[in-house]
């Protein structure tokens, strides 16, 4: 598995996302209040715009989530599943903090619908 280094861990604000360009793929990266990292595709499947990294981070019944900034559908940061419409999901990527840096790999961990 090849990891790409993105930015310093401290550059990520808790409870917000940023977008990274990794081998031409737009990856939305999130750091939660507890310090966990999550990575999803930046493409909002409902609107076709690359914006998920700019959504509001939160929880739904304990599960960490992001709400699309365009029409507010909520996605699980863990599985990429849309919690408002379970027939839709977005790809989830592997992400880790390594030596103070955030690293991502765009080999997909969870395929849509799996």
């Amino acid at each position: 598995m090849s990891w790409t280094s993105i930015c310093a861990y401290d550059a990520l604000l808790p409870e917000r996302g940023v977008c990274a360009l990794v081998d031409g793929v737009q990856v939305a990266l999130f750091r939660t209040y507890e310090g966990e990292l999550y990575a999803l595709s930046n493409l909002d499947p409902f609107s076709g715009a690359y914006v998920l990294s700019r959504g509001i981070v939160g929880t739904r019944r304990g599960e960490p989530t992001v709400a699309s900034p365009l029409h507010k559908q909520v996605f699980s940061l863990v599985t990429g599943l849309c919690l408002d419409d379970e027939s839709v999901s977005v790809p989830v990527y592997a992400v880790r903090a390594e030596g103070g840096y955030v690293e991502v790999t765009v080999r997909q961990l969870v395929e849509a619908g799996v």
């Binding site: 604000l13 609107s47 715009a49 690359y50 700019r54 981070v57 900034p69």
Partner: peptide
């Protein structure tokens, strides 16, 4: 500070988001 993480994308970028981002 922490308030940045509470804002909708419009307030976060002090501008109105459009359909293409």
């Amino acid at each position: 500070g922490e308030r940045a993480a509470l804002q909708d994308t419009n307030d976060a970028f002090l501008a109105n988001i459009q359909k293409n981002g």
